[in-house]
Write a protein that binds this DNA or RNA. Structure first.
Length: 573
RNA sequence: UACCCGGUGGUGUAAUUGGUAACACAGAAGGUUUUGGACCUUCCAUUCCAGGUUCAAGUCCUGGCCGGGUAACCA
Protein backbone atom coordinates (compact mmCIF):
# COMPACT_ATOMS: atom_id res chain seq x y z
CA UNK A 1 0.00 0.00 0.00
CA UNK A 2 1.19 3.48 -0.77
CA UNK A 3 2.76 5.16 2.22
CA UNK A 4 1.81 8.67 3.19
CA UNK A 5 4.18 11.58 2.92
CA UNK A 6 7.87 11.23 3.54
CA UNK A 7 8.17 7.48 3.52
CA UNK A 8 8.29 7.20 -0.27
CA UNK A 9 10.66 9.98 -1.10
CA UNK A 10 13.95 8.17 -1.43
CA UNK A 11 15.68 9.90 -4.29
CA UNK A 12 17.51 7.57 -6.62
CA UNK A 13 16.96 9.60 -9.77
CA UNK A 14 19.25 9.20 -12.73
CA UNK A 15 20.82 12.44 -13.99
CA UNK A 16 19.43 13.98 -17.17
CA UNK A 17 20.83 12.45 -20.33
CA UNK A 18 22.00 15.74 -21.80
CA UNK A 19 23.55 18.61 -19.94
CA UNK A 20 21.58 21.81 -19.80
CA UNK A 21 23.53 25.04 -20.07
CA UNK A 22 23.94 25.38 -16.30
CA UNK A 23 25.24 21.84 -15.89
CA UNK A 24 27.47 22.46 -18.89
CA UNK A 25 29.03 25.43 -17.09
CA UNK A 26 29.56 23.34 -13.97
CA UNK A 27 31.05 20.51 -16.03
CA UNK A 28 33.36 22.94 -17.82
CA UNK A 29 34.43 24.42 -14.49
CA UNK A 30 35.27 20.94 -13.29
CA UNK A 31 37.47 20.18 -16.30
CA UNK A 32 39.18 23.56 -16.17
CA UNK A 33 39.71 23.27 -12.43
CA UNK A 34 38.20 26.71 -11.89
CA UNK A 35 37.08 25.82 -8.37
CA UNK A 36 39.64 23.09 -7.72
CA UNK A 37 37.01 20.52 -8.56
CA UNK A 38 34.61 21.70 -5.88
CA UNK A 39 30.92 22.07 -6.69
CA UNK A 40 28.85 24.03 -4.20
CA UNK A 41 25.38 25.35 -5.00
CA UNK A 42 22.71 26.76 -2.78
CA UNK A 43 18.97 27.15 -2.56
CA UNK A 44 18.29 30.51 -0.87
CA UNK A 45 14.61 30.99 0.00
CA UNK A 46 13.38 33.96 1.99
CA UNK A 47 11.33 32.61 4.90
CA UNK A 48 8.33 34.76 4.14
CA UNK A 49 6.10 32.30 2.32
CA UNK A 50 5.56 28.73 1.26
CA UNK A 51 7.35 26.91 -1.50
CA UNK A 52 5.65 26.14 -4.81
CA UNK A 53 6.37 24.08 -7.91
CA UNK A 54 8.46 26.93 -9.31
CA UNK A 55 10.78 26.63 -6.32
CA UNK A 56 10.86 22.89 -6.94
CA UNK A 57 12.50 23.56 -10.30
CA UNK A 58 15.22 25.59 -8.61
CA UNK A 59 15.58 23.04 -5.82
CA UNK A 60 15.94 20.15 -8.27
CA UNK A 61 18.48 22.14 -10.26
CA UNK A 62 20.65 23.12 -7.31
CA UNK A 63 20.43 19.92 -5.32
CA UNK A 64 20.51 17.85 -8.50
CA UNK A 65 23.75 19.44 -9.67
CA UNK A 66 25.35 18.97 -6.28
CA UNK A 67 24.35 15.30 -6.26
CA UNK A 68 25.49 14.63 -9.82
CA UNK A 69 28.85 16.33 -9.48
CA UNK A 70 29.65 15.04 -6.01
CA UNK A 71 29.27 18.46 -4.47
CA UNK A 72 27.08 20.02 -1.84
CA UNK A 73 23.97 22.12 -1.94
CA UNK A 74 23.36 24.51 0.92
CA UNK A 75 19.95 25.42 2.21
CA UNK A 76 20.33 29.05 3.11
CA UNK A 77 17.56 31.22 4.43
CA UNK A 78 17.85 34.68 2.99
CA UNK A 79 16.46 36.37 6.07
CA UNK A 80 17.62 39.95 5.70
CA UNK A 81 14.24 41.61 6.00
CA UNK A 82 12.55 40.89 9.34
CA UNK A 83 9.27 42.52 8.39
CA UNK A 84 7.62 39.51 6.76
CA UNK A 85 9.88 36.69 7.84
CA UNK A 86 8.76 34.07 10.33
CA UNK A 87 9.99 30.93 11.98
CA UNK A 88 6.94 29.05 10.70
CA UNK A 89 8.21 29.43 7.15
CA UNK A 90 11.68 28.16 7.91
CA UNK A 91 10.12 24.97 9.22
CA UNK A 92 7.70 24.44 6.39
CA UNK A 93 10.37 25.15 3.79
CA UNK A 94 12.67 22.55 5.30
CA UNK A 95 9.85 20.05 5.41
CA UNK A 96 9.01 20.67 1.77
CA UNK A 97 12.60 20.37 0.55
CA UNK A 98 12.94 17.10 2.42
CA UNK A 99 9.64 15.81 1.11
CA UNK A 100 10.83 16.56 -2.40
CA UNK A 101 13.62 14.13 -1.68
CA UNK A 102 16.63 16.36 -1.07
CA UNK A 103 19.07 16.58 1.79
CA UNK A 104 21.29 19.51 2.70
CA UNK A 105 23.18 17.48 5.27
CA UNK A 106 25.18 19.79 7.54
CA UNK A 107 24.67 22.73 5.29
CA UNK A 108 21.82 24.64 6.84
CA UNK A 109 22.62 28.35 6.90
CA UNK A 110 21.04 31.70 7.54
CA UNK A 111 22.08 35.02 6.06
CA UNK A 112 21.34 36.41 9.53
CA UNK A 113 24.32 34.44 10.82
CA UNK A 114 26.50 36.66 8.63
CA UNK A 115 25.22 40.02 9.90
CA UNK A 116 28.44 40.60 11.86
CA UNK A 117 30.72 39.81 8.94
CA UNK A 118 28.57 41.87 6.61
CA UNK A 119 28.89 44.85 8.91
CA UNK A 120 32.65 44.51 9.09
CA UNK A 121 32.80 44.45 5.33
CA UNK A 122 30.58 47.50 5.13
CA UNK A 123 33.03 49.33 7.39
CA UNK A 124 35.80 48.18 5.09
CA UNK A 125 34.04 49.72 2.08
CA UNK A 126 33.45 52.96 3.96
CA UNK A 127 37.12 53.10 4.88
CA UNK A 128 38.02 52.53 1.26
CA UNK A 129 35.81 55.43 0.26
CA UNK A 130 33.45 53.06 -1.54
CA UNK A 131 30.38 53.57 0.61
CA UNK A 132 28.73 56.50 2.32
CA UNK A 133 25.87 57.38 4.60
CA UNK A 134 23.07 59.23 2.86
CA UNK A 135 20.66 61.39 4.84
CA UNK A 136 18.16 61.71 2.01
CA UNK A 137 14.68 60.33 2.44
CA UNK A 138 13.57 57.30 0.46
CA UNK A 139 11.64 59.64 -1.83
CA UNK A 140 14.68 61.81 -2.46
CA UNK A 141 16.90 58.82 -3.12
CA UNK A 142 14.37 57.53 -5.58
CA UNK A 143 13.90 60.88 -7.27
CA UNK A 144 17.64 61.36 -7.67
CA UNK A 145 18.15 57.92 -9.13
CA UNK A 146 17.13 59.25 -12.54
CA UNK A 147 15.15 57.15 -15.00
CA UNK A 148 15.88 54.27 -17.33
CA UNK A 149 16.90 56.73 -20.00
CA UNK A 150 18.41 59.57 -17.99
CA UNK A 151 21.23 59.51 -15.44
CA UNK A 152 20.75 60.12 -11.74
CA UNK A 153 22.23 62.95 -9.74
CA UNK A 154 24.72 62.63 -6.93
CA UNK A 155 23.46 62.85 -3.39
CA UNK A 156 24.56 65.99 -1.54
CA UNK A 157 26.00 63.62 1.09
CA UNK A 158 27.99 61.60 -1.39
CA UNK A 159 31.33 63.12 -0.56
CA UNK A 160 31.33 63.00 3.19
CA UNK A 161 34.64 62.20 4.82
CA UNK A 162 35.48 58.67 5.78
CA UNK A 163 35.47 59.74 9.41
CA UNK A 164 32.01 61.23 9.25
CA UNK A 165 30.68 58.18 7.38
CA UNK A 166 32.19 55.86 9.96
CA UNK A 167 30.71 57.87 12.79
CA UNK A 168 27.29 57.96 11.19
CA UNK A 169 27.33 54.24 10.34
CA UNK A 170 28.30 53.40 13.90
CA UNK A 171 25.46 55.47 15.23
CA UNK A 172 23.03 53.99 12.73
CA UNK A 173 23.96 50.57 14.05
CA UNK A 174 23.68 51.82 17.63
CA UNK A 175 20.09 52.80 17.03
CA UNK A 176 20.47 56.56 17.30
CA UNK A 177 18.39 57.29 14.22
CA UNK A 178 14.79 56.58 13.38
CA UNK A 179 13.65 54.23 10.61
CA UNK A 180 14.18 55.60 7.14
CA UNK A 181 16.23 58.57 8.22
CA UNK A 182 19.50 57.39 6.71
CA UNK A 183 20.94 54.60 4.60
CA UNK A 184 24.37 53.30 3.77
CA UNK A 185 25.01 53.38 0.04
CA UNK A 186 27.72 51.98 -2.16
CA UNK A 187 29.51 54.72 -4.07
CA UNK A 188 29.49 53.45 -7.62
CA UNK A 189 28.12 55.56 -10.45
CA UNK A 190 24.93 57.65 -10.50
CA UNK A 191 25.12 57.81 -14.28
CA UNK A 192 25.39 54.08 -14.90
CA UNK A 193 23.03 52.81 -17.60
CA UNK A 194 22.35 49.95 -15.18
CA UNK A 195 20.20 51.64 -12.56
CA UNK A 196 21.15 49.03 -9.98
CA UNK A 197 24.65 50.47 -10.04
CA UNK A 198 23.46 54.01 -9.19
CA UNK A 199 24.73 53.93 -5.62
CA UNK A 200 22.62 51.03 -4.36
CA UNK A 201 21.45 50.93 -0.76
CA UNK A 202 23.38 48.51 1.44
CA UNK A 203 21.76 49.11 4.82
CA UNK A 204 18.44 50.51 5.89
CA UNK A 205 17.35 51.35 9.42
CA UNK A 206 14.53 49.16 10.74
CA UNK A 207 13.81 48.98 14.42
CA UNK A 208 12.14 45.65 13.93
CA UNK A 209 12.95 42.46 15.83
CA UNK A 210 14.32 39.63 13.70
CA UNK A 211 13.08 36.06 14.02
CA UNK A 212 16.60 34.87 14.80
CA UNK A 213 18.67 37.84 15.94
CA UNK A 214 15.98 39.44 18.04
CA UNK A 215 16.71 43.12 18.57
CA UNK A 216 20.47 42.80 18.19
CA UNK A 217 20.29 44.77 14.94
CA UNK A 218 18.36 47.78 13.80
CA UNK A 219 20.10 48.08 10.44
CA UNK A 220 19.48 45.35 7.91
CA UNK A 221 21.37 44.51 4.73
CA UNK A 222 19.56 44.68 1.43
CA UNK A 223 19.42 41.65 -0.87
CA UNK A 224 22.29 42.76 -3.09
CA UNK A 225 24.56 43.58 -0.19
CA UNK A 226 23.84 40.29 1.56
CA UNK A 227 23.52 37.72 -1.17
CA UNK A 228 26.85 37.60 -2.94
CA UNK A 229 28.71 37.98 0.32
CA UNK A 230 26.77 35.08 1.81
CA UNK A 231 27.68 33.00 -1.23
CA UNK A 232 31.28 34.03 -0.72
CA UNK A 233 31.32 33.14 2.97
CA UNK A 234 29.94 29.70 2.16
CA UNK A 235 32.44 29.30 -0.68
CA UNK A 236 29.65 28.61 -3.12
CA UNK A 237 30.96 27.91 -6.61
CA UNK A 238 27.87 28.37 -8.75
CA UNK A 239 25.23 30.80 -7.56
CA UNK A 240 22.23 29.87 -9.65
CA UNK A 241 19.27 32.21 -9.71
CA UNK A 242 16.41 33.28 -11.94
CA UNK A 243 16.54 35.64 -14.91
CA UNK A 244 15.32 38.77 -13.13
CA UNK A 245 18.65 38.86 -11.31
CA UNK A 246 20.62 39.15 -14.51
CA UNK A 247 20.76 42.92 -14.11
CA UNK A 248 22.05 42.41 -10.59
CA UNK A 249 25.09 40.42 -11.64
CA UNK A 250 27.30 43.48 -12.23
CA UNK A 251 26.50 44.59 -8.70
CA UNK A 252 27.04 41.09 -7.33
CA UNK A 253 30.47 41.19 -8.95
CA UNK A 254 31.19 44.76 -7.88
CA UNK A 255 30.77 44.08 -4.17
CA UNK A 256 32.90 40.96 -4.24
CA UNK A 257 35.62 42.69 -6.24
CA UNK A 258 35.55 45.79 -4.04
CA UNK A 259 35.98 43.57 -1.01
CA UNK A 260 38.60 41.44 -2.69
CA UNK A 261 37.08 38.23 -1.38
CA UNK A 262 36.28 34.78 -2.77
CA UNK A 263 34.06 35.30 -5.80
CA UNK A 264 31.41 32.74 -6.87
CA UNK A 265 29.90 32.77 -10.34
CA UNK A 266 26.26 33.84 -10.67
CA UNK A 267 24.29 32.18 -13.47
CA UNK A 268 20.67 32.88 -14.33
CA UNK A 269 17.98 30.60 -15.73
CA UNK A 270 14.31 31.06 -16.64
CA UNK A 271 11.82 30.44 -13.89
CA UNK A 272 8.98 27.97 -14.33
CA UNK A 273 5.61 29.05 -15.65
CA UNK A 274 2.66 26.67 -15.94
CA UNK A 275 -0.55 26.97 -17.90
CA UNK A 276 -3.76 27.42 -15.87
CA UNK A 277 -1.62 28.38 -12.89
CA UNK A 278 -0.29 31.42 -11.08
CA UNK A 279 3.07 31.26 -9.38
CA UNK A 280 3.53 34.68 -7.89
CA UNK A 281 3.85 34.64 -4.10
CA UNK A 282 1.84 37.83 -3.90
CA UNK A 283 -1.06 36.43 -5.89
CA UNK A 284 -1.05 33.12 -4.08
CA UNK A 285 -1.20 35.07 -0.85
CA UNK A 286 -4.19 36.97 -2.13
CA UNK A 287 -6.07 33.76 -2.95
CA UNK A 288 -5.43 32.53 0.57
CA UNK A 289 -6.23 35.80 2.32
CA UNK A 290 -9.43 36.39 0.40
CA UNK A 291 -10.49 32.82 1.12
CA UNK A 292 -10.72 32.05 -2.58
CA UNK A 293 -8.99 28.80 -1.64
CA UNK A 294 -9.07 26.98 1.67
CA UNK A 295 -5.47 27.68 2.69
CA UNK A 296 -1.85 27.31 1.62
CA UNK A 297 -2.34 23.58 1.32
CA UNK A 298 -5.47 23.81 -0.80
CA UNK A 299 -5.10 20.93 -3.28
CA UNK A 300 -5.74 23.31 -6.18
CA UNK A 301 -2.69 25.42 -5.39
CA UNK A 302 0.74 24.86 -6.96
CA UNK A 303 2.30 25.07 -3.51
CA UNK A 304 4.27 22.03 -2.44
CA UNK A 305 1.85 21.62 0.46
CA UNK A 306 -1.09 21.84 -1.91
CA UNK A 307 0.40 19.34 -4.34
CA UNK A 308 1.17 16.99 -1.48
CA UNK A 309 -2.38 17.15 -0.20
CA UNK A 310 -3.65 16.70 -3.73
CA UNK A 311 -1.74 13.42 -3.92
CA UNK A 312 1.27 14.36 -6.02
CA UNK A 313 4.39 12.30 -5.43
CA UNK A 314 7.91 13.67 -5.03
CA UNK A 315 9.02 11.34 -7.83
CA UNK A 316 6.51 12.87 -10.23
CA UNK A 317 7.59 16.41 -9.36
CA UNK A 318 11.26 15.58 -9.75
CA UNK A 319 10.65 13.83 -13.04
CA UNK A 320 8.69 16.84 -14.22
CA UNK A 321 11.51 19.21 -13.30
CA UNK A 322 13.96 17.03 -15.16
CA UNK A 323 11.75 16.84 -18.25
CA UNK A 324 11.11 20.56 -18.31
CA UNK A 325 14.82 21.28 -18.60
CA UNK A 326 16.69 24.49 -17.90
CA UNK A 327 17.24 27.37 -20.29
CA UNK A 328 17.22 31.13 -20.51
CA UNK A 329 14.08 31.39 -22.60
CA UNK A 330 10.95 32.56 -20.81
CA UNK A 331 8.57 29.70 -21.41
CA UNK A 332 5.28 28.36 -20.16
CA UNK A 333 4.95 24.64 -19.67
CA UNK A 334 1.67 22.88 -20.34
CA UNK A 335 0.25 21.53 -17.04
CA UNK A 336 -0.57 18.42 -19.04
CA UNK A 337 3.12 17.57 -18.81
CA UNK A 338 3.03 17.76 -15.01
CA UNK A 339 -0.07 15.57 -15.04
CA UNK A 340 1.62 13.13 -17.38
CA UNK A 341 4.58 12.76 -15.04
CA UNK A 342 2.14 12.27 -12.18
CA UNK A 343 0.12 9.56 -13.94
CA UNK A 344 3.29 7.81 -15.00
CA UNK A 345 4.38 7.42 -11.39
CA UNK A 346 0.93 6.76 -9.99
CA UNK A 347 0.18 4.14 -12.65
CA UNK A 348 3.20 2.13 -11.61
CA UNK A 349 2.63 2.31 -7.89
CA UNK A 350 -1.02 2.88 -7.02
CA UNK A 351 -3.10 -0.06 -5.82
CA UNK A 352 -6.36 -0.36 -7.78
CA UNK A 353 -9.70 -0.24 -6.04
CA UNK A 354 -13.29 0.08 -7.13
CA UNK A 355 -15.31 3.09 -6.09
CA UNK A 356 -18.56 4.38 -7.49
CA UNK A 357 -18.71 8.14 -7.32
CA UNK A 358 -22.23 8.71 -8.60
CA UNK A 359 -24.06 5.51 -7.70
CA UNK A 360 -27.11 3.94 -9.23
CA UNK A 361 -28.37 0.65 -7.84
CA UNK A 362 -28.45 -2.54 -9.87
CA UNK A 363 -30.34 -5.70 -8.92
CA UNK A 364 -29.47 -9.06 -10.48
CA UNK A 365 -32.82 -10.78 -10.61
CA UNK A 366 -31.48 -14.29 -11.16
CA UNK A 367 -28.80 -14.10 -8.46
CA UNK A 368 -29.51 -15.88 -5.13
CA UNK A 369 -30.93 -13.47 -2.55
CA UNK A 370 -28.68 -13.99 0.43
CA UNK A 371 -25.53 -15.00 -1.40
CA UNK A 372 -22.24 -13.12 -1.06
CA UNK A 373 -19.21 -14.23 -3.04
CA UNK A 374 -15.63 -13.14 -2.52
CA UNK A 375 -14.07 -12.46 -5.90
CA UNK A 376 -10.39 -12.09 -6.68
CA UNK A 377 -9.24 -8.71 -7.92
CA UNK A 378 -5.78 -7.72 -9.10
CA UNK A 379 -4.22 -4.95 -7.03
CA UNK A 380 -2.03 -3.54 -9.77
CA UNK A 381 -1.73 -4.92 -13.29
CA UNK A 382 1.50 -2.93 -13.67
CA UNK A 383 3.03 -4.62 -10.64
CA UNK A 384 2.41 -8.35 -10.14
CA UNK A 385 4.11 -8.19 -6.74
CA UNK A 386 1.21 -6.10 -5.49
CA UNK A 387 -0.82 -9.31 -5.46
CA UNK A 388 -4.56 -9.68 -5.33
CA UNK A 389 -7.36 -9.01 -2.90
CA UNK A 390 -10.91 -10.25 -2.50
CA UNK A 391 -13.93 -8.09 -2.92
CA UNK A 392 -17.54 -9.08 -2.16
CA UNK A 393 -20.21 -9.49 -4.81
CA UNK A 394 -23.91 -9.87 -4.19
CA UNK A 395 -27.34 -9.51 -5.75
CA UNK A 396 -27.44 -5.73 -5.26
CA UNK A 397 -24.62 -3.35 -6.06
CA UNK A 398 -23.87 0.10 -7.44
CA UNK A 399 -22.51 1.15 -10.76
CA UNK A 400 -21.66 4.60 -12.05
CA UNK A 401 -24.70 6.52 -13.21
CA UNK A 402 -22.89 7.58 -16.36
CA UNK A 403 -22.18 3.94 -17.21
CA UNK A 404 -25.81 3.46 -18.18
CA UNK A 405 -27.69 5.08 -21.02
CA UNK A 406 -31.17 4.23 -22.08
CA UNK A 407 -30.76 5.64 -25.55
CA UNK A 408 -27.03 5.62 -26.28
CA UNK A 409 -25.05 6.95 -29.22
CA UNK A 410 -23.25 4.48 -31.45
CA UNK A 411 -19.89 4.54 -29.69
CA UNK A 412 -21.25 4.06 -26.19
CA UNK A 413 -19.96 0.65 -25.06
CA UNK A 414 -21.46 0.55 -21.60
CA UNK A 415 -24.71 -0.70 -20.12
CA UNK A 416 -27.91 -0.10 -22.03
CA UNK A 417 -31.19 -2.03 -22.18
CA UNK A 418 -30.70 -5.48 -23.65
CA UNK A 419 -26.91 -5.17 -23.84
CA UNK A 420 -24.42 -7.43 -22.10
CA UNK A 421 -21.38 -5.94 -20.38
CA UNK A 422 -18.78 -7.21 -17.96
CA UNK A 423 -18.58 -6.32 -14.30
CA UNK A 424 -14.90 -6.20 -13.61
CA UNK A 425 -13.66 -9.40 -11.92
CA UNK A 426 -17.31 -10.54 -11.55
CA UNK A 427 -19.85 -11.54 -14.20
CA UNK A 428 -21.34 -10.64 -17.52
CA UNK A 429 -24.69 -9.00 -16.97
CA UNK A 430 -27.49 -7.98 -19.29
CA UNK A 431 -29.84 -5.12 -18.56
CA UNK A 432 -33.46 -6.24 -18.59
CA UNK A 433 -35.41 -3.44 -16.95
CA UNK A 434 -35.16 0.24 -16.04
CA UNK A 435 -36.99 1.62 -13.01
CA UNK A 436 -37.80 5.33 -13.02
CA UNK A 437 -39.30 7.76 -10.57
CA UNK A 438 -42.24 10.07 -11.26
CA UNK A 439 -39.94 12.57 -12.97
CA UNK A 440 -38.53 9.98 -15.32
CA UNK A 441 -35.15 9.70 -13.58
CA UNK A 442 -33.58 6.28 -13.61
CA UNK A 443 -33.48 5.04 -10.02
CA UNK A 444 -32.72 1.36 -10.37
CA UNK A 445 -31.68 -1.15 -13.00
CA UNK A 446 -32.54 -4.81 -13.23
CA UNK A 447 -30.23 -7.25 -14.89
CA UNK A 448 -29.60 -10.93 -15.30
CA UNK A 449 -26.19 -12.50 -14.98
CA UNK A 450 -24.48 -15.46 -16.57
CA UNK A 451 -23.13 -17.71 -13.78
CA UNK A 452 -20.65 -19.22 -16.23
CA UNK A 453 -18.78 -15.93 -16.55
CA UNK A 454 -17.60 -15.78 -12.94
CA UNK A 455 -14.41 -13.75 -12.71
CA UNK A 456 -15.25 -11.94 -15.92
CA UNK A 457 -14.38 -14.52 -18.59
CA UNK A 458 -16.84 -16.21 -20.89
CA UNK A 459 -16.16 -19.90 -21.42
CA UNK A 460 -17.69 -19.74 -24.88
CA UNK A 461 -15.38 -16.94 -25.89
CA UNK A 462 -18.08 -14.39 -26.45
CA UNK A 463 -16.95 -10.81 -26.21
CA UNK A 464 -18.37 -7.71 -24.60
CA UNK A 465 -17.35 -4.18 -25.43
CA UNK A 466 -17.65 -2.68 -21.99
CA UNK A 467 -16.28 -3.43 -18.55
CA UNK A 468 -17.75 -1.59 -15.59
CA UNK A 469 -16.58 -1.11 -12.03
CA UNK A 470 -19.07 -1.74 -9.25
CA UNK A 471 -19.38 -1.95 -5.47
CA UNK A 472 -21.55 -4.44 -3.61
CA UNK A 473 -24.34 -2.52 -1.89
CA UNK A 474 -24.42 -4.20 1.52
CA UNK A 475 -20.69 -3.92 2.07
CA UNK A 476 -20.13 -0.50 0.48
CA UNK A 477 -18.50 2.25 2.51
CA UNK A 478 -20.05 5.68 1.97
CA UNK A 479 -17.51 8.43 1.47
CA UNK A 480 -17.00 12.01 0.47
CA UNK A 481 -14.94 12.60 -2.65
CA UNK A 482 -13.52 15.95 -3.66
CA UNK A 483 -13.03 16.39 -7.37
CA UNK A 484 -10.40 18.96 -8.25
CA UNK A 485 -9.82 20.64 -11.55
CA UNK A 486 -7.63 23.49 -12.77
CA UNK A 487 -7.97 26.56 -10.56
CA UNK A 488 -8.29 28.80 -13.59
CA UNK A 489 -10.31 28.45 -16.75
CA UNK A 490 -7.76 30.12 -19.01
CA UNK A 491 -4.28 28.94 -19.93
CA UNK A 492 -2.97 32.31 -18.89
CA UNK A 493 -4.84 33.51 -15.79
CA UNK A 494 -3.48 37.01 -16.40
CA UNK A 495 -5.31 37.22 -19.69
CA UNK A 496 -8.20 39.41 -18.55
CA UNK A 497 -10.43 42.18 -19.80
CA UNK A 498 -9.81 45.82 -18.93
CA UNK A 499 -10.40 46.53 -15.27
CA UNK A 500 -10.34 42.88 -14.23
CA UNK A 501 -7.64 40.84 -12.60
CA UNK A 502 -6.65 37.18 -12.53
CA UNK A 503 -9.41 36.31 -10.06
CA UNK A 504 -11.89 36.85 -12.89
CA UNK A 505 -10.51 33.67 -14.44
CA UNK A 506 -11.01 31.50 -11.38
CA UNK A 507 -12.72 28.25 -12.28
CA UNK A 508 -16.03 28.01 -10.38
CA UNK A 509 -15.90 24.23 -10.80
CA UNK A 510 -12.34 23.74 -9.60
CA UNK A 511 -13.74 21.89 -6.59
CA UNK A 512 -16.80 19.67 -6.75
CA UNK A 513 -17.61 17.84 -3.54
CA UNK A 514 -19.41 14.55 -3.89
CA UNK A 515 -21.09 12.82 -0.99
CA UNK A 516 -22.67 9.40 -0.90
CA UNK A 517 -19.91 7.86 -3.01
CA UNK A 518 -19.57 4.10 -2.51
CA UNK A 519 -16.22 2.48 -1.85
CA UNK A 520 -15.29 -1.17 -1.89
CA UNK A 521 -14.81 -2.39 1.71
CA UNK A 522 -11.04 -2.93 1.45
CA UNK A 523 -10.74 0.86 1.51
CA UNK A 524 -11.98 0.98 5.11
CA UNK A 525 -8.50 1.09 6.56
CA UNK A 526 -7.02 3.59 4.11
CA UNK A 527 -4.72 5.98 5.93
CA UNK A 528 -4.54 9.72 5.30
CA UNK A 529 -2.10 10.41 2.50
CA UNK A 530 -2.36 6.95 0.96
CA UNK A 531 -2.96 6.83 -2.77
CA UNK A 532 -5.14 4.59 -4.92
CA UNK A 533 -6.39 4.31 -8.41
CA UNK A 534 -10.16 4.08 -8.50
CA UNK A 535 -10.54 1.97 -11.60
CA UNK A 536 -11.71 3.89 -14.62
CA UNK A 537 -12.05 7.11 -12.59
CA UNK A 538 -8.62 8.36 -11.69
CA UNK A 539 -6.10 8.56 -8.90
CA UNK A 540 -7.29 9.49 -5.44
CA UNK A 541 -5.71 9.95 -2.04
CA UNK A 542 -7.05 10.12 1.47
CA UNK A 543 -7.36 13.69 2.69
CA UNK A 544 -5.98 14.63 6.13
CA UNK A 545 -9.55 15.69 7.06
CA UNK A 546 -10.60 12.07 6.61
CA UNK A 547 -11.83 10.08 9.63
CA UNK A 548 -12.65 6.41 10.08
CA UNK A 549 -16.36 7.16 10.26
CA UNK A 550 -16.20 9.75 7.48
CA UNK A 551 -13.68 8.89 4.79
CA UNK A 552 -12.67 11.72 2.46
CA UNK A 553 -10.78 11.22 -0.77
CA UNK A 554 -9.21 13.82 -3.03
CA UNK A 555 -9.02 13.27 -6.74
CA UNK A 556 -5.38 13.76 -7.62
CA UNK A 557 -5.83 13.49 -11.37
CA UNK A 558 -8.20 11.71 -13.71
CA UNK A 559 -7.24 8.80 -15.87
CA UNK A 560 -6.88 9.65 -19.53
CA UNK A 561 -10.40 9.36 -20.81
CA UNK A 562 -10.95 8.85 -24.53
CA UNK A 563 -14.68 8.53 -24.05
CA UNK A 564 -14.83 11.94 -22.35
CA UNK A 565 -12.77 13.32 -25.20
CA UNK A 566 -15.17 11.92 -27.80
CA UNK A 567 -18.11 13.37 -25.92
CA UNK A 568 -16.48 16.75 -25.73
CA UNK A 569 -15.93 16.77 -29.46
CA UNK A 570 -19.36 15.38 -30.22
CA UNK A 571 -17.82 12.41 -31.99
CA UNK A 572 -19.79 9.72 -30.20
CA UNK A 573 -21.75 8.64 -33.24
C1' U B 1 13.74 56.44 -25.54
C1' A B 2 18.72 53.53 -21.95
C1' C B 3 20.91 48.98 -20.48
C1' C B 4 20.78 43.55 -20.06
C1' C B 5 18.91 38.82 -21.89
C1' G B 6 16.45 35.87 -25.28
C1' G B 7 13.98 33.80 -30.35
C1' U B 8 14.38 25.68 -32.96
C1' G B 9 7.13 21.99 -34.43
C1' G B 10 0.83 23.47 -30.81
C1' U B 11 4.18 23.24 -25.83
C1' G B 12 8.96 22.50 -23.83
C1' U B 13 13.98 20.69 -24.24
C1' A B 14 18.19 18.78 -27.51
C1' A B 15 21.50 18.63 -31.90
C1' U B 16 28.75 15.03 -31.25
C1' U B 17 30.29 22.65 -30.59
C1' G B 18 30.20 24.08 -38.61
C1' G B 19 28.35 18.03 -41.08
C1' U B 20 22.49 17.70 -42.98
C1' A B 21 16.88 18.65 -36.99
C1' A B 22 16.34 14.27 -31.85
C1' C B 23 13.36 13.31 -27.33
C1' A B 24 9.03 14.20 -24.37
C1' C B 25 4.11 16.29 -23.87
C1' A B 26 -0.21 17.70 -26.63
C1' G B 27 -2.96 16.42 -31.18
C1' A B 28 -4.42 12.76 -35.24
C1' A B 29 -4.89 7.63 -37.13
C1' G B 30 -4.52 2.41 -36.18
C1' G B 31 -3.40 -2.11 -33.10
C1' U B 32 -4.15 -4.43 -28.46
C1' U B 33 -6.85 -4.76 -23.90
C1' U B 34 -11.24 -7.99 -18.03
C1' U B 35 -9.73 -0.14 -16.51
C1' G B 36 -12.59 3.71 -23.29
C1' G B 37 -6.39 3.08 -18.25
C1' A B 38 -1.59 1.05 -19.45
C1' C B 39 1.10 -0.65 -23.70
C1' C B 40 2.56 -0.76 -29.19
C1' U B 41 2.82 1.45 -34.31
C1' U B 42 2.40 5.58 -37.63
C1' C B 43 1.73 10.89 -38.80
C1' C B 44 2.66 16.04 -37.30
C1' A B 45 9.17 21.74 -37.88
C1' U B 46 13.94 22.82 -42.99
C1' U B 47 15.26 26.32 -36.89
C1' C B 48 12.04 34.94 -36.48
C1' C B 49 13.51 37.75 -41.25
C1' A B 50 17.31 39.51 -44.81
C1' G B 51 22.07 39.41 -46.37
C1' G B 52 27.20 37.40 -45.77
C1' U B 53 31.44 33.68 -44.75
C1' U B 54 31.93 28.32 -46.11
C1' C B 55 32.14 22.42 -49.99
C1' A B 56 28.62 22.65 -45.81
C1' A B 57 25.15 27.28 -41.10
C1' G B 58 19.93 25.97 -36.19
C1' U B 59 25.16 26.64 -34.89
C1' C B 60 29.87 31.97 -37.18
C1' C B 61 29.39 37.58 -38.95
C1' U B 62 26.24 42.04 -40.20
C1' G B 63 21.56 44.46 -40.20
C1' G B 64 16.57 44.23 -39.02
C1' C B 65 12.01 42.31 -36.51
C1' C B 66 9.72 40.34 -32.21
C1' G B 67 9.55 38.96 -26.88
C1' G B 68 11.16 39.37 -21.68
C1' G B 69 13.69 41.91 -17.60
C1' U B 70 15.38 46.44 -15.00
C1' A B 71 14.16 52.90 -12.16
C1' A B 72 11.74 48.89 -3.29
C1' C B 73 15.35 51.52 2.11
C1' C B 74 11.52 43.54 -1.35
C1' A B 75 13.97 39.06 -2.42
Amino acid sequence: MTKPDTADNENTDAPPERLDFVRQIVADDCTSGKWDGRVVTRFPPEPNGYLHIGHAKSICLNFGIAAEFGGACHLRFDDTNPVAEEEEYVHSIQQDVRWLGWDWGEHLYFASDYFGQLYEWAVQLVEAGKAYVDDQSAEQVSANRGTLTSPGTDSPYRDRSVEENLDLLTRMKAGEFPDGSRVLRAKIDMASPNVLLRDPVMYRIMHTPHHRTGDAWCIYATYDWAHGQSDSIERVTNSICTLEFENHRPLYDWYLDALGVYHPQQTEFARLNLTYTIMSKRKLLRLVEERLVSGWDDPRLPTIQGLRRRGYTPVAIREFCKTVGVAKFNSTIDVALLEHCLRQDLNKHSPRRMAVLDPIKVVIDNYPEAQVEQLDAINNPEDPSAGTRQTPFSREFYIEREDFMEDPPRKFFRLTPGREVRLRYAYFITCTDVVKDADGNVVELHCTYDPATRGGDSPDGRKVKGTLHWVSAAEAIPAEVRLYDHLFTTEDPEDVAEGEDFTANLNPDSLVTLTGCMLEPSLAAAEPGSRYQFERKGYFCVDPDSAADKPIFNRTVTLKDTWAKLKKKGKTH
